[in-house]
């Protein structure tokens, strides 16, 4: 029972890390830049949220499979088979949960006052320093909220994961897969225990996020930085 839990946590965490880096680059660009085809691109990014995970799984299979462009390249160049490994589960989870990260991060970046970045520019800061010391810290609450939602969604990913990573116990069998196959094989006790674990984990994650956004986030916005109530106004 422990194996699927640890694997799920590992996969969800790795997916969150992937989503974090890809997410901040894309969200930041989309929040500040105007270019032709932006609407279409935006729709494409949000699409994984509304499509059935099996559709995404199918798409990933075509892309990452042995005969797919990416899968074939990895196999030929590095002799590495991506499909049916836990890396494939990470990619599936990352793709499915990406819109959650993207939407939170984009709103967070859009909420950062452009004047602050301009002020930093007149103070001699380079763009990278401005991003790391002004934009990112100010957008951080929204980005963190996105990451937490991402984590919860990645933890529960089933359809796309099954299609690209399969159900290999100890290798790609995450909690949702283990539950499904436990029920299939009549192991209701095992299924129930895992259901309890993932429900508690997801509840704790979302509960923390709600608590945090109600208490800490408000204080952050009001006081500036991590300070609570303003003392002097």
């Amino acid at each position: 029972m422990l194996e699927p839990i640890l694997l799920s946590l590992k996969v969800a965490l790795a997916a969150v890390i992937v989503d974090f880096f890809v997410g901040i680059v894309i969200a930041r660009t989309m929040a500040r830049k105007e270019f032709p085809g932006k609407n279409a691109m935006e729709s494409l990014i949000i699409l994984p949220m509304v499509l059935p995970p099996t559709v995404l799984g199918y798409g990933l299979l075509i892309l990452l499979g042995k005969r797919g462009p990416v899968g074939n390249f990895l196999l030929e160049t590095f002799d590495f088979q991506l499909i049916f490994t836990w890396w494939a589960a990470v990619i599936a989870s990352a793709v499915v949960s990406f819109p959650l990260m993207y939407q939170s991060a984009k709103a967070a970046f859009a909420g950062v006052d452009v004047t602050l970045e301009q002020a930093a520019r007149t103070l001699g800061a380079r763009e990278m320093r401005i991003f790391l010391t002004v934009t990112l810290p100010l957008a951080w609450p929204g980005i963190l909220a996105g990451l937490v939602l991402c984590f919860a969604r990645a933890l529960g990913e089933f359809g796309a994961t099954l299609m690209v990573a399969g159900n290999i116990p100890g290798k790609t069998q995450t909690i949702p897969l283990a539950i499904y196959f436990a029920v299939e094989s009549g192991d209701t006790d095992g299924a129930r225990n895992l259901v309890l674990v993932i429900t508690l984990l997801s509840f704790a994650t979302v509960f923390w996020l709600n608590w945090w956004s109600r208490n800490k986030l408000q204080a952050w916005k009001k006081g500036g930085g991590c300070r609570a109530e303003s003392e002097h106004q």
Binding site: D113, T115, L116, Q118, T122, A125, R126, L138, G225
Partner: peptide
């Protein structure tokens, strides 16, 4: 802008709220 050495005081101050 960053190498012009021109100070700028903005209308709404533009202080970094997290510092």
């Amino acid at each position: 802008a960053r190498i012009r050495r021109i100070g700028y005081v903005f209308q709404d101050y533009a202080l970094f709220p997290h510092m």
